[in-house]
Structures are given as structure tokens and as C-alpha cells.
Amino acid sequence: MNELFNKLNIKPKNTEIYVKALTHTSYAHENQTEHNERLEFLGDAVIELMMSTYLFNNDLSDQGILTKRRAQSVREEALVLYAQKLDLTNYMKLGNGETTPKPSMIADAFEALFGAMYLDLGFKETYKVFLNVVIPNLKLVENIKDYKTQLQEFIQLERKSLTYKTFKTGGPSHKPTFKSEVYLEGDILLGYGNGSSTKEAEQNAAKEALSKVVKERV
């Protein structure tokens, strides 16, 4: 962990909270220890607030554009990219059945890490890390494919609406599976997708729907 702390350029007060931030539920269940889900919940809000703060102070665009840029910059694929720059997977604790972390698990760990830093060091010190770790990589995430956004923009050309219905389909509490269905105008099924998180399932549903509507328009 000291190697990670050096990369982040922080001096933690409570090292245990960082260990918890990088502990997946699969490892926690096998070893009867705490996992990172609550820290993930907090870190999600912390990162969004910090991105909002940065954009507000450095981008003079209107609210609609700022909202879109923030969403693109804190979405799962972007978080995974930031995490990869830290080699975060090298420090994650996974259960025996999780030899390779899924993108959603990496993104969750990155969020939990920021939740841990916020609790341990406060907003000011955590924001310094955010500026060093996230901001230099913003250009890299601008072109990340976001299937939900692409589908939304495509459908808006015809002034129609999209809705997602996502529900848990099975799996143990530490490894649930989800299915998402995307509907046009509330009742026309465009596509569906599965995933290990609601975000992943919705992205896969949007990806399938996008492939269909693009073919129909060609």
C-alpha cells in the first residue's frame, strides 16, 4: 500500500480505511472482513462534486454542456482509465473466484479510494489528488464510447423518448447479475443487455439497441 500512497502523494492517517476501499465483496465474504461498498457510495458523490467544482472553475460553457462533460468524465469507463494509470488492480483484494477484476469492480474500487481519502484527509487534500490523477487524463476520456449517450442522441433526432428497466436476475449478494431493457416511447423494446452492475447492463442494452436502430436507418 505504501507504493500506492507514494503514487497518490499522500500521507494517510488511517491506512486501514484504504485497505477496505480496495477490498471487493468476494474477498470480504471469504475472509469475514469489511468490503468497499459503503466507501464506493461516498466516493461516487465525492468524485462527482470534485468534477463539478473543476468544470465550474475552468469551463465557461452553459449548464447543459457542463452536465454532459461531467457525465462523460465520471462514467465507468473513465474511472477505469484513471484507475489503470495508478495500476489500481495490483492493490485490490479479490475473492478466489475473481482472478481478473471486471471493469465495474475497478471503477467501484476507484470510487471507494476517493471515499477513503475524503474521510481520512478531507476535501482539500483529496482534491489535490483529483487534480493530479484525474484532470491530466480528461482528454483521453472524451472519445470513450458511451452507448447510452449515443443512443439518446440518435433517438432525440426524431424527438422520441427512451426508458430503461433494470432489475436483478440472480447471483449471490456479493456477485449479483442484472438485466436491462431499453424501450422507445415507453413500450417498444429496442434491446436488452446483461451485466454485473446496473450500469453495465444498461450500457449493453443500449449497445444492442443502437446496432438495431442504425441498421434500420441505413
Score class of each variant (00 low, 15 high):
1 M>S: 06
2 N>M: 03
5 F>R: 04
6 N>S: 10
9 N>T: 06
10 I>C: 02
12 P>H: 09
13 K>H: 11
16 E>L: 07
19 V>T: 13
24 H>P: 05
25 T>L: 09
32 Q>R: 12
33 T>I: 12
39 L>M: 05
40 E>K: 15
41 F>T: 03
45 A>H: 15
52 S>E: 11
56 F>P: 03
57 N>M: 06
59 D>H: 03
59 D>T: 03
63 Q>F: 14
66 L>N: 01
66 L>P: 09
67 T>Q: 09
67 T>I: 11
68 K>C: 02
68 K>T: 07
70 R>M: 11
70 R>T: 11
73 S>C: 05
78 A>R: 08
78 A>E: 10
79 L>I: 08
83 A>V: 10
84 Q>W: 07
85 K>T: 13
85 K>I: 03
92 M>D: 00
98 E>T: 10
99 T>E: 12
104 S>P: 11
106 I>R: 12
108 D>N: 13
108 D>Q: 13
112 A>C: 06
115 G>E: 04
115 G>N: 03
116 A>V: 06
119 L>K: 10
119 L>G: 01
120 D>S: 06
131 L>H: 01
132 N>K: 14
132 N>W: 02
136 P>L: 09
136 P>D: 09
142 E>L: 14
142 E>H: 11
143 N>Q: 07
149 T>Y: 02
151 L>Q: 01
152 Q>R: 04
161 S>C: 00
165 K>T: 02
167 F>S: 05
183 Y>M: 09
187 D>H: 09
191 G>E: 06
193 G>N: 02
196 S>N: 13
199 K>S: 07
201 A>H: 02
207 K>D: 00
211 S>I: 13
212 K>W: 13
215 K>R: 15
215 K>S: 15
215 K>P: 07
218 V>H: 14
